[in-house]
Amino acid sequence: MIFQSELDLKVARIDVLNETLKRFHLVSAGGEFLPPAPPGSHLTFLLNPRDGEVIKNSYSVVSPTLIRDHYEIVVRKAADSRGGSKFFHEDVKEGNLLKAKAPRSNFSVHSLARKSILIAGGIGITPIISLLDEIKRRRCKVELHVICGQSDRLALEALLADEALAGPNFYEGRNNCSIGKILAGQPLGTHLYICGPFNLMRHVQEVAHELGYPSSNVHIESFGATIGNAFNVKVEGLNKEISVGESESLLETLEREGIEAPFSCRGGACGQCVVRVVEGEVDHRDFFLSDEQRAAGNCMTPCVSRASGRALTIAIK
């Protein structure tokens, strides 16, 4: 169903693409259809590599967006793994169950693009694959440029094999690829989608800017699902200090900790969840509080707003 926020997934198959890349086929543990995976989307997994430890890792869904009976993800074993990719590569076996949040995307296809240019750096190809699928369904002109290390080329080419794309352009290493050449002389209405290392994305943005691409035509996927900084919160009246992680809201943290908090829209619009701020600076991200209320600094909407610093003390009505 479409309205599931947490998914129980079963590993149906694992393909070894090369020494560092594996592809996982995931089906719903209950056998029902999965929510559609939007183009460019990722799944955030809640992993238990060891008892008592929970880590969150996000991986792009590379299967076509129309498919509802399974997801495919590709995981690269990172040298400096926090544990997530190591866990996937060494511990996850066919038949295992995994918990994940429903897929979310930071990319979307611009509906008025007359041509799309996709640029991927290395494993940054993964969110680009489902984006490409959606763009092709829209019968929009498209070019794909992939910059990668020599050792990954075969595996990444294999990932794209199903796409039957006329000539994806591969470049082995940044020095063999001129972004200026790719971007110059493109027709009006060209949109760029870039995913890869920060420096590559920055470079493409700069070149595009110089050539006169408006910023609304340049779309960047920053990897991961971070919402903001992590911070600690004391709740007045409760003898408890709770930690809000980078990828969760204060409201979610309160709920996780079993602290009752009112809410309605969960998007910073309705004001139902407003709490009193006793101490600490707030990074206000809502649409509800007035400028005066923000300036006074004694209330906040925990569904979207966060601490500017490292700590807050709040009181719930």
């Binding site: 479409i2 309205f3 926020s5 929510p35 559609p36 829209c265 998007g267 910073g268 619009a269 979207v304």
Partner: peptide, 17 residues
């Protein structure tokens, strides 16, 4: 309406309002 448009733009699918 300004609030409404900003609110709607941050909506996620699967969570209708």
């Amino acid at each position: 309406f300004e609030s409404a448009v900003n609110y709607l733009m941050q909506m996620e699918y699967g969570i209708p309002v």
